[in-house]
Design a protein around this nucleic acid. Structure first.
Lengths: 247, 247
DNA sequence: GCAAAAGTGTTCCGACTACACCCATGC
DNA sequence: GCATGGGTGTAGTCGGAACACTTTTGC
């Protein structure tokens, strides 16, 4: 008696509870350092609602699946990538945000938990299944999206800038070896042109002591060759969990 | 045909989708400046599961109700308060986090969207309905809570410290008129004793120019009377939406 | 040689730290 | 007077902003 729906009879208010399907939508960013562009991954919808419109890659949560598992699954279906950063963004759950919440659907609600991801661009191989449209869009050229996804994207972009300023995500997403210019470009692409003078940026980061100069030089066209650096997790340890600024 | 459950037949994977009830749990903080204590609001559960244990005040989302409406409703049921700060915290949605997800319940899942609130202590009048246990607990004395609520609380506490350091929430929650000592106590209570020298704290805040000295003095026991200050929203405008530090 | 990119150094100035000290009140 | 809390001032130091300058490459 107890186990099977114990309160439906005892408490009349239970009847008023909303039933939900839970969706997961991912805001997946990537930085193309070569072209200096900040990209977001969009997919074309092949189903109603919003058939034929671009949207953030998403899915509905399955039985026995955790939210983060679902987020991972969407990612894995769209791109093959080894290094990534993933965290929960925000939960959008107002009524009427999904047209499937029709009066005819017995009051079923659709709630969306959004996730934020940053992936290594060079490694991120898009999975083209022949049919589905899927593409990296430069942030400035994003078209009107399905659902409230433009809003979600806006929110994700804000989070991206914060993350990048206050945590070392950059190194999870840059190549193993990188020049200080690469690093500077990375920040410039996300934060805008005038976030810092290059030379000051340089000395500040080097003074922190978690960038290890491999001594190897690379030449990119004209100009003096640059040293390749490596992120040193040990050297970073003292800053771990402490607030810090990369601006 | 279209409107009524259009894809259940078309797409076999729909059968595997999880069905959810969505709960809202609030981490409600308050600062008792008189006694220098940081408090969190807990309620006693009168139903299974976890009957007889303390928990964060929460509820299940009703039909037609937005998440934030639900959060507001819980708050309003427990305390009468005029000034508060409320924002979404995190969404916990793994399977098996709620014992009601029994095998007998046809796979119904329980997802919890947590909200974070900060209320004005003096104004916050607890609603005692005679039966229900409800109390402000000093943060250090919080007992083991129902569900994963200790974890949620931990998360909320982290957010509180961040909010307080980087935004002017303090003024939404202090009395209209306050002394600089009050303000200092407020920060000390939340951030710990050694966050800043009083005199430096003082001059930094005054230099920012959004604290208006009313000229009125109050005497609290012995010692020189203190000026009452008022938060000046106009004066704060230049800092709005800019990152800033109150440490 | 010259342009281009990488890397170094220097000066200025504002902000934060750590104090020492003065002021106004209750008793 | 003196203890108590409120309020002011200052000297030292650290770090960021701005910018000039040197080094090493391709062509």
């Amino acid at each position: 008696m107890r186990g099977r729906n114990p309160r439906k009879s005892a408490n009349p208010s239970l009847a008023q509870l909303a039933d939900f399907k839970v969706g997961v939508d991912n805001v997946i960013f990537s930085v193309d350092t070569a072209q200096n562009r900040l990209l977001v991954l969009l997919v074309m919808r092949h189903e109603d609602p919003f058939m034929g419109q671009w949207s953030l890659p998403g899915t509905l949560v399955r039985q026995g699946e955790s939210l983060e598992d679902a987020a991972d699954r969407v990612l894995a279906e769209k791109i093959r990538v080894e290094n990534l950063y993933l965290e929960q963004l925000y939960t959008f759950g107002g009524p009427n945000r999904d047209p499937r919440e029709a009066p005819t659907s017995y009051g079923m609600r659709y709630l969306s938990v959004s996730y934020f991801a940053l992936v290594r661009f060079a490694e991120a191989e898009l999975i083209a299944d022949g049919v589905s449209g899927i593409a990296w869009y430069p942030l400035q050229q994003v078209p009107p999206l399905a659902f409230d996804h433009n809003q979600v994207l806006e929110y994700g972009y804000r989070r991206l800038r914060n993350k990048v300023e206050y945590s070392p995500v950059a190194f999870e997403v840059l190549p193993e070896l990188f020049t200080l210019s690469d690093l500077y470009q990375f920040y410039t692409t996300i934060l805008g042109d005038h976030f810092s003078d290059y030379s000051n940026f340089r000395s500040r980061l080097l003074k922190l002591g978690f960038l290890h100069d491999t001594g190897v030089k690379v030449s990119r066209g004209a100009g003096r060759p640059a040293s390749l650096y490596r992120f040193d997790a040990n050297g970073f340890a003292p800053y771990k969990d402490k607030p810090m600024v990369f601006i």
